[in-house]
Design a protein around this nucleic acid. Structure first.
Lengths: 333, 333
DNA sequence: CTGTTAGCGCATTCAG
DNA sequence: CTGAATGCGCTAACAG
């Protein structure tokens, strides 16, 4: 790669000052069309590209945003990321993608690195930090939007799914089908969404006059293998269970596998309900009844809110709540 | 967000020069431990974070890399991205993720934006640019590694899957099972991998003494719906087909759907083989026979090669080829 | 409409 | 071991 062409090179070649080149590059209109054209020609001929780094230093804005997820390989976050990146791209921003693997230490590390990169804003999904740590971290960015997490009081926007309503809907669906022993594969302990879904699960039980049985609930990693193990343990320890409500579809697929291994037919012996409605959900056998979450929308709206807050001011909109929708399929008719 | 603490603030507060602070921040050892500690204390107290932007301007290295994919929401690229991001994170880099949606114009646009951001290097997956355009674009980066694409001659590294061998293996598997009319859902016309897989398909046919029948091949979008449509058309137009080799697993799932709609049983009436072995492949009914591609590895090795080339020099290693592996399941026993 | 002067925050000389 | 001067490439604020 040859040495980079700078603005000075263009200015010299075009016989103008760097300031004029700068104006042309930024579409400031106060340049005579002829001059403008001459500069543009030189830019073209020399293959000049302005340095975002230098511009960032001068303007204190980098045109750069951060997107933090637990794991892009998880289809949920892949879709969220796509929605977010799409909005950012449309507005001319580039986005740093960071994975945390649910590890608070790593989360702190990536937040630190994004601060060093001087991102103009940050979309933080499913943070696993404690309230005070999180609050302390977020003041270090010009603007922040949280996804799947609420943080009382201060200046972070939030885009959420109504997890409690979704879980309540899903659980009620099972109860209305006559189930009285509904287990809950609760996902990670540290998940905010998980806690909200637990609330919904318990509310649905109490709505139906049933009491919450803690031994029917089991935390697990939010992936297929996590659901597999947890479902296996739960079904063996509590053969009375006739239904499982699962933290997400991956966990539900794991539950399906466990049922198959244990010779429990789905839905006849055990009904299974998932959450998210990822592509997979409709394609497994039997197809999963699940709560559809608009993941792309979640990412896109979070990014939009972030952009609004970046230039509109922090009083724009504080919180967006998306409604999940129950999708009934064969795993829990 | 309060005004940012700068190096000068730290220097003043610690009673040293900015140079000393700079040395401390960069672990240069030529600082007396006592001074070092004093500086570190002030850094901690003031919450100082060096500016990567300023540092980038001064050093001409940004600690930033680009990763370009067609679509992160596609599970193939989600896994590649994860592998790549992981390696980059381990080396202290941040990565910009960009989607192109198979649109060459958009690809040019994101490449341009990454150049402005002055990335230290670039991993470019499945480029849809023409040879000369691509070559012209790549000289603008300090280092580049291509994924799923070969580019003769010059200084771009490449990490590839042996698509031809995989396709040949997959097709041969079908032929050995007695199929004589094997269709090919070929994916996008612009896909390099697609063309390689077409070669493998044709080679396998000729290995078996069969001739290539162009009407049994049909291009399609590399997603479920694309496979669905293409398979539907192909099976209606050519009911003699008893097997379908598919560009990837998503397409294969679409083919499964089409078979179901047309009342063709899989594998008895039509055998189906996919490519990639994404999570989905093992979970649909019937489970897909497919060519496993080590996607995480693909991303991780591409990133590793990029890092090697960034500081080791461009003569390091030019090309890595990963072998796919045939996974036999019920869709084509 | 165009040019000049002065930083943005840091690292790289070279001196002490 | 530590500091002072200089520049990375660009834009903001004034002048002309």
């Amino acid at each position: 790669m040859a040495d980079r062409v700078t603005m000075a090179d263009v200015a010299r070649e075009a016989g103008v000052s760097v300031m004029t080149v700068s104006r042309v590059m930024n579409n400031k209109d106060q340049v005579r069309p002829a001059t403008c054209q001459r500069v543009l020609d030189v830019v073209e001929r020399l293959g000049y590209r302005p340095s975002g780094i230098a511009r960032g230093l001068a303007t204190q804005r980098t045109g750069t945003l951060g997107l933090v997820v637990l794991d892009v390989a998880n289809p949920f976050f892949a879709d969220v990321a796509r929605g977010a990146e799409e909005r950012a791209y449309a507005e001319g921003y580039n986005v740093f993608l960071c994975n945390t693997d649910e590890d608070p230490q790593r989360e702190m590390a990536v937040l630190g690195s994004l601060e060093e990169k001087r991102v103009d804003g940050l979309v933080l999904c499913s943070s696993r930090l404690g309230e005070s740590e999180l609050r302390a971290a977020l003041v270090r960015y010009p603007a922040v939007v949280l996804v799947n997490r609420r943080l009382g009081g201060d200046g972070a926007g939030a885009v959420l799914v109504d997890d409690e309503a979704g879980a309540r809907m899903a659980t009620r669906h099972l109860l209305q089908a006559g189930h009285r022993a509904v287990g809950f594969l609760a996902g990670p302990r540290t998940s905010y969404s998980g806690r909200e879904r637990a609330k919904g699960y318990r509310t649905a039980l109490s709505d139906a006059g049933l009491s919450f049985n803690p031994v029917w609930m089991c935390h697990c990693s939010p992936v297929v293998e996590g659901g597999h193990e947890a479902a296996r343990q739960l079904l063996i320890a509590h053969p009375e269970l006739t239904a499982l409500f699962c933290y997400n579809d991956l966990v539900a697929v794991g539950a399906l596998q466990a049922c198959a291994e244990l010779g429990r037919r789905v839905p006849d012996d055990v009904a299974v309900v998932g959450f998210d409605d990822i592509l997979l959900a409709a394609l497994v056998t039997p197809p999963l009844t699940t709560c559809r979450v608009p993941r792309y929308e979640l990412g896109a709206q979070a990014m939009q809110l972030l952009l609004d807050r970046i230039d509109g001011g922090l009083d724009k909109c504080e919180e967006v709540v998306l409604r999940p929708e129950l999708i009934v399929r064969a795993s829990a008719p």
